[in-house]
Design a protein around this nucleic acid. Structure first.
Length: 452
RNA sequence: GUGGUCGUAGCUCAGUUGGUUAGAGCGCCAGAUUGUGGCUCUGGAGGUCGCCGGUUCGAGUCCGGUCUUCCACCCCA
C-alpha cells in the first residue's frame, strides 16, 4: 500500500505564514488606496456559469478556462465523441473565473436596479487560468481590481493612474505607467487599409519592445497583411518624444479617420489632466502598447517594473460595451487590475519588504514548570490588555530550547519567571538581540515593552 | 495547445564507460550544560534516488511513458 506523496496541482502554491504576512502587506496597501478613493468592496463566486465566461476573452481565453464537470450523471444525454471540445460544453455547465472584470459586468447587469451609477467597486480575489506555468505565471493567482462603471468621464482614467502611481510608490517599486488608446490602434488599422484586422495588428505591434521591429513585421506579413500596409505602419511606430509631440504627428497622420482622432483627443485630455496632479512615476504614451483583452475600447494601461523583467504587474483599460453582452448596452466602464503575485515576486527579488512586516509576538514568557506557567497566565493577560502581543511557551522544556524557539520566530524579548522571580515579585526580561537581561516590577515591564 | 528542460536527505548539491552497503556541507534531534540561544565538541535520526514500466547477471546511471519544475512559443497578471 503505497501512500502517494502529498502534492498540489500544477501552477498552484501554498503560502507559508511568512509569505502570507507579506502578501497581506501588499493586499492591505492596495485595499487602502482603493477605499481611499471611494471604491467599495465586492466579491463574486469562484465559479460562474460557463456561458458567462465563454467568448469574452477570445479563442485563446476560451482555451484557458478551467471547466467544472457537472455533478451526478454528467454523461447523461451526451454522446461519447472524439470532439472533446464540443463534449466538454455538454458535460460542463460551470467554469472557474478567468478574471474579475467579466464577473463584475455580469454582477452589474444582474443588479442594475440596485446600483447607483457611477458605480465604483474594488475586488480582490483569485482567478484561474489553465496556462502552462512559468516564472511569474501561475494557474491560480490574485487580481486586485478597481473599476468605475457608468461614467464616460476621463477623470476616471486620471484617478486610476493616480492610484497606480500611489500604490507602487508606497510599495517602493519603481515603475513606468504606459498608456495607449484602442481607438488610436483602430484608427491606424483603418489608415493602412486593414480596418478589420485590429487584433492581428495590435498583437504583433505589442511585441515591438520585446522582439524588435523586424520580427513584428515578419509576423504581420505571416498574418497576411500586405507589404504596402506594413510600410505605412513603420513611421508611426518610430514616433517618439513628448506625448504632445506624438499626438501632433498622429493627428496629422490620422486626418479624416474619426475614430483615431477621437482616440488622440482622449489621450490629449488625459495627459493635460495629469498636469494637475504630480505623479511620482513616469507616465508615458506608447503607441505600441496593445494588451490582449479584446473588450477594451478606449484607454489602455500597463505598468512595468523598472528593475525586474517580469511582464506587466498592473494593467487595465476602458470598455464601452462589456455589459452589452449581458443585455445592458450603453454603459461604459474603466478599470485597473494589480497582479499581486507578480508584485510579490518583484518585491521579493528587490528585497523591498520592510523588516517589521511581521506578526510575531513582542515577548514570549518562558515556561519553568506547571506552577510557574499558571502564575504566568495572569502576566500574559496583563500584557495583552496593554496591547502587547505576548505568548506563553506551552511546554516545560529546557530553557535553551525555549530561547531558540523565540529566536527562530523573531520574538525580540523573553520573560523569565521562575521560583526566584515569583518570590521576589520581579520579572527578568531578556533581550534576544544581545542577551542583555533586566529585572522589572510587573507594571514597569508593561511600560518598558510599550515603549519598544 | 506546440517544442525543450529539470527531478538524489528538510535545504544546496556530489555520485566515473551501468558494478557490491548512495555520499558531503548546512539544517534537525540528543548529550556535554537539570535557569540562558547564536560558538565548540560528541553521538543520532533521516533516502521506495519523482512515479510506473522496459533493457541487463546487475540501473541513481541506459530506454519508453507519466507527473513535477523551469524555459521558449502562444497568450497574459
Amino acid at each position: 500500500m503505497a501512500i502517494p506523496k502529498p502534492s498540489i496541482p500544477k501552477g498552484t502554491r501554498d503560502f507559508s505564514p511568512v509569505e502570507m504576512v507579506r502578501r497581506n502587506y501588499i493586499f492591505d496597501t492596495i485595499k487602502t488606496a482603493f477605499s481611499k478613493y471611494g471604491y467599495l468592496p465586492l466579491e463574486t463566486p469562484a465559479m460562474e456559469n460557463l456561458d458567462t465566461l465563454l467568448g469574452k476573452y477570445g479563442d485563446e481565453g476560451d482555451r484557458l478556462l478551467f471547466k467544472i464537470l457537472n455533478s451526478g450523471d454528467f454523461m447523461k444525454g451526451a454522446e461519447p465523441t472524439t470532439n472533446t471540445n464540443a463534449l466538454s460544453l455538454k458535460i460542463c455547465e460551470k467554469g472557474l473565473r478567468y478574471d474579475l472584470t467579466v464577473p463584475f459586468a455580469r454582477y452589474v447587469v444582474q443588479h442594475q436596479n440596485d446600483i447607483i451609477f457611477p458605480f465604483k467597486r474594488y475586488q480582490i480575489q483569485p482567478v484561474w487560468r489553465a496556462d502552462r506555468p512559468q516564472k511569474g505565471r501561475y494557474r491560480e493567482f490574485y487580481q486586485c481590481d478597481a473599476d468605475v462603471i457608468g461614467s464616460n468621464s476621463l477623470l476616471n482614467e486620471i484617478e486610476l493612474i493616480r492610484i497606480m502611481d500611489e500604490v507602487f510608490s508606497q510599495l517602493g517599486i519603481r515603475i513606468t505607467i504606459k498608456i495607449n488608446n484602442r481607438k488610436i490602434l483602430a484608427g491606424i488599422s483603418e489608415y493602412i487599409g486593414e480596418a478589420g484586422r485590429i487584433t492581428d495588428i495590435t498583437v504583433a505591434i505589442d511585441k515591438l519592445d520585446k522582439m524588435g521591429e523586424e520580427k513584428v513585421f515578419t509576423e504581420l506579413r505571416e498574418k497576411g497583411i500586405p507589404m504596402e500596409a506594413i510600410s505605412k505602419i513603420k513611421p508611426l511606430l518610430k514616433i517618439s518624444g513628448k506625448a504632445e509631440e506624438q499626438f501632433e504627428v498622429l493627428t496629422k497622420t490620422l486626418a479624416g479617420i474619426s475614430t483615431g482622432l477621437r482616440g488622440v483627443e482622449e489621450m490629449h485630455k488625459i495627459f493635460s489632466g495629469l498636469k494637475n496632479i504630480s505623479t511620482l512615476n513616469p507616465v508615458e504614451f506608447d503607441v505600441s502598447l496593445a494588451r490582449g483583452l479584446n473588450y477594451y475600447t478606449g484607454a489602455i494601461f500597463e505598468v512595468k517594473a523598472t528593475d525586474v523583467e517580469i511582464g506587466s504587474i498592473c494593467g487595465g483599460g476602458r470598455y464601452d460595451n462589456l455589459t452589452g453582452i449581458f443585455g445592458l448596452p450603453g454603459i461604459s466602464g474603466v478599470g485597473i487590475s494589480f497582479g499581486a503575485d507578480r508584485i510579490y515576486d518583484v518585491m521579493n527579488q528587490l528585497k523591498l519588504f520592510p523588516a517589521d512586516v511581521s506578526a510575531a509576538s513582542q515577548v514570549m514568557i518562558a515556561n519553568f514548570g506547571e506552577k510557574e506557567a499558571l502564575f504566568c497566565l495572569s502576566l500574559q493577560a496583563k500584557l495583552l490588555e496593554a496591547g502587547i502581543r505576548a505568548e506563553l511557551y506551552p511546554d516545560t522544556v529546557k530553557l535553551g530550547k525555549q530561547i531558540g524557539y523565540a529566536v527562530s520566530r523573531n520574538i525580540p524579548f523573553i520573560a523569565l519567571i521562575g521560583e526566584n522571580e515569583i518570590k521576589e515579585e520581579k520579572i527578568t526580561l531578556k533581550r534576544l538581540s544581545d542577551g542583555n537581561q533586566q529585572s522589572f516590577a510587573r507594571q514597569d515591564l508593561i511600560e518598558y515593552l510599550k515603549n519598544q
